[in-house]
Amino acid sequence: MIRIAIIGSGGSGKSTLARKMGDKLNLEVWHLDRLLWKPNWQLTTREEQREIQNELIAKDKWIIDGNYTRTLDIRLNAADTILFLDISKVICVTRVVKRMIKFRNSTRPDMNEGCNEKIDLRFIKWVWKFPKTQRPYILTKLEQLSTNKEIIVLKSPKEIQRFLDNL
């Protein structure tokens, strides 16, 4: 467990888990939100996203958190361990709203400077629809991976905590 990809809906706890795992395992953590968003919420081009992620996976050891389904294969193919946080949409939306309120008009720790948190109804709707729109795609991708990868699906905050406790 030295090349770890953490995926899941917004609000599922990817960044928090990545930080905690990085501390426990002494691995460098890379938050894709911090790397792929430019100030004022300008998303990097798909080509830039691929370049950035190819540089990250070239490293010997890492934890990368983020969904970004258009470049998901880069991380999944390079990882030896994949954690899919398959958390209830109610929990995820609640967490996203709390995060938007807590960091409103400031930048949260896992985000690039200049991307101040704001109430974003489009993102909230995306998180709510994630189980129907994104989850099936992710599960199909995980099924297609080679058997030499450890794939861990965590379905609740308690399961995440137990996983961390057992690291």
Results as ranks from 00 to 15, higher is better:
residue 63 I to E: 07
residue 138 I to G: 02
residue 65 D to P: 09
residue 81 T to G: 13
residue 7 I to C: 07
residue 30 W to G: 02
residue 77 N to H: 13
residue 22 G to L: 00
residue 91 I to Q: 04
residue 25 L to E: 01
residue 89 K to C: 13
residue 66 G to M: 06
residue 60 D to P: 09
residue 73 D to A: 14
residue 161 Q to W: 06
residue 38 K to W: 09
residue 26 N to S: 08
residue 25 L to C: 03
residue 24 K to F: 00
residue 85 L to E: 04
residue 20 K to C: 01
residue 143 E to R: 14
residue 147 T to W: 01
residue 75 R to M: 11
residue 91 I to C: 04
residue 22 G to M: 01
residue 127 V to A: 02
residue 127 V to H: 00
residue 62 W to Q: 05
residue 55 E to P: 03
residue 120 D to N: 10
residue 94 T to E: 14
residue 114 G to L: 12
residue 22 G to S: 02
residue 165 D to S: 10
residue 30 W to A: 08
residue 36 L to A: 03
residue 6 I to W: 07
residue 147 T to P: 02
residue 165 D to Y: 06
residue 131 P to R: 06
residue 55 E to Y: 09
residue 153 V to R: 13
residue 132 K to D: 04
residue 9 S to D: 05
residue 69 T to S: 12
residue 144 Q to E: 10
residue 13 G to R: 12
residue 153 V to W: 08
residue 144 Q to R: 06
residue 139 L to T: 06
residue 66 G to A: 05
residue 116 N to R: 08
residue 61 K to L: 04
residue 16 T to D: 04
residue 20 K to L: 05
residue 7 I to G: 03
residue 165 D to N: 09
residue 72 L to E: 11
residue 71 T to C: 09
residue 163 F to L: 01
residue 8 G to A: 04
residue 129 K to W: 05
residue 10 G to N: 09
residue 21 M to V: 01
residue 29 V to C: 06
residue 78 A to F: 10
residue 7 I to F: 03
residue 49 Q to E: 05
residue 131 P to G: 07
residue 162 R to D: 15
residue 48 E to L: 11
residue 56 L to I: 15
residue 37 W to D: 11
residue 27 L to F: 02
residue 15 S to G: 03
residue 80 D to A: 05
residue 5 A to T: 07
residue 114 G to Q: 13
residue 116 N to H: 12
residue 153 V to C: 12
residue 98 K to S: 01
residue 64 I to Y: 08
residue 55 E to N: 14
residue 63 I to C: 12
residue 94 T to V: 03
residue 61 K to C: 04
residue 3 R to L: 05
residue 5 A to V: 02
residue 67 N to F: 06
residue 76 L to C: 12
residue 103 F to W: 15
residue 120 D to G: 02
residue 38 K to Y: 11
residue 17 L to F: 10
residue 40 N to L: 03
residue 125 K to Y: 00
residue 21 M to P: 01
